[in-house]
Simulated scan of single mutants.
Amino acid sequence: MATRDRLDLTLRLVQGAERATIAELARRLGVSEMTVRRDLDALQEAGLVRRVRGGAVATRELREEAGYTARLGWQPAVKDRLGAATAALVQPGETVLLDAGTTTVHVAQHLADRAPLTVAVLSLQAATALADVPGVRLLVLGGESRPGERSLVGPLALRALAGFSFDIFVMSIGGISADGWSEFALEDAAVKQAALPRAGRIVVVADATKLGVRAFAHVAPLDVVDGLVTDVGARDPDLGATATATLTALTDAGVDLTYA
C-alpha cells in the first residue's frame, strides 16, 4: 500500500473509532507497529490526530473532516476508479447535481465522456474541473464557500437548490453506517438534505473506509439512496465487523452496490 493511501486509511480508522490503538491499526493495515507510530506522528504533525498512550484519538479538526487540501493527494488511484465508475452511471443528456469532495472531482473529470450534460456543482473544485469542457453546460450554484473545503453551503445554496430538479444527484458522504448516511459538518449535511428530494436518482460515491463510520450530522436513512459506488476494499474481511454489517444493511435497504 502506498504511503499516502496508508495515511488516508489510518486517518479514517482513527476517525471511525475516535480512539484507535497502535496494535489494532497495525493489524488492520497489515504493517508493523513501528510503521503505525511513524504514520501517526505524521498525522499529528498535520494536526489531524492527537497521539495518546498506545494509540491516537481524533482531533476536533478530524471530527469535522480533514480539509480538502490535506485529502487531495490521498488514494488518487482509488478515487479515479470511483470517479470513472460513477460517471458511467450518468446517461448523456441528463441533468446532474454534483456534490463537493475530493472524490467527486474525479467524477467531474470523467463526466466529459458522458456529454452532452448539464451539470450543477456544489464545490469550487468541481467547477474548475468542468469549466470549458465541450458538451457540458456548467451551472455553479450560489452559496458560501466553506473554509478548508470550498464546498458551497448556507442559505444561498439552499435557496438555489429549491429552484431546480435533477435527473441524478451524485453525493459524497463522510460516514455510512446502519443508522444511515452522515456528515461531519452541519452545513454540508443541510445542503445534502436539501438536494436529496430534488433528484430522480441518488448515487453516493465513497471509498470503503467510510463504511461503519457514523459522523456527527445525520443526513438521511440508507433507503433514500439508489446506489453506492465504492472500492473493492469494501469486500476485505479485515475492514471489520462494523463495515461488514453496514454492507448488509445497505443491501437490506435496497441500495445497489457497485465496486470499482
Rank of each mutant, 00 (worst) to 15 (best):
A2Q: 12
T3M: 02
T3K: 11
R4I: 04
D5I: 11
D8L: 13
D8V: 07
D8C: 14
D8Q: 13
T10P: 07
G16L: 06
R19I: 11
A23G: 03
A26T: 07
A26Y: 05
R27G: 00
G30A: 10
V31W: 06
M34Y: 11
M34L: 11
V36Q: 06
V36M: 05
R37C: 02
R38H: 04
R38W: 01
R38F: 01
D39C: 04
L40W: 06
E45G: 05
A46T: 05
V49C: 07
R53E: 06
G55R: 12
G55L: 14
A56E: 09
V57E: 11
A58V: 07
E61H: 13
E61W: 09
E65L: 04
E65P: 00
G67M: 01
R71V: 03
V78N: 12
V78G: 04
K79E: 00
K79L: 03
G93C: 04
T103R: 08
T104E: 02
A108P: 12
Q109N: 15
Q109E: 15
H110D: 12
L111N: 03
A112M: 06
R114C: 05
P116D: 05
L117N: 09
V119M: 07
A120K: 02
V121F: 02
A126W: 01
A127G: 14
A127H: 12
T128V: 06
L130F: 09
A131E: 09
A131N: 04
V133L: 01
P134R: 12
G135W: 12
V136P: 03
R137D: 10
L138R: 02
G142W: 02
G143P: 14
G143E: 11
S145D: 02
S145T: 09
R146M: 04
E149V: 14
E149P: 00
R150G: 00
R150M: 11
S151N: 10
L152R: 11
V153A: 08
P155V: 05
A157G: 10
G163S: 06
S165R: 14
I168F: 10
I173T: 14
G174P: 05
I176A: 00
I176T: 02
S177Q: 08
S177G: 15
A178F: 08
W181Y: 14
S182D: 09
S182W: 13
E183T: 00
E183I: 08
A185I: 00
A185N: 15
L186N: 05
L186E: 15
Q193R: 14
Q193K: 15
A195K: 13
R198K: 14
R198M: 05
A199K: 09
I202L: 15
A208M: 04
T209D: 05
K210C: 12
K210E: 10
L211F: 08
G212I: 13
A215S: 09
A215N: 10
A215I: 02
A217C: 15
H218F: 08
D223N: 15
V225A: 15
V225T: 06
G227I: 01
V229E: 07
V229Q: 07
V232G: 01
D236V: 11
P237T: 02
P237D: 10
D238L: 03
D238G: 05
L239N: 12
L239I: 15
L250E: 09
T251V: 11
T251Q: 13
D252V: 12
G254E: 11
V255W: 13
L257Y: 11
T258C: 02
Y259P: 01
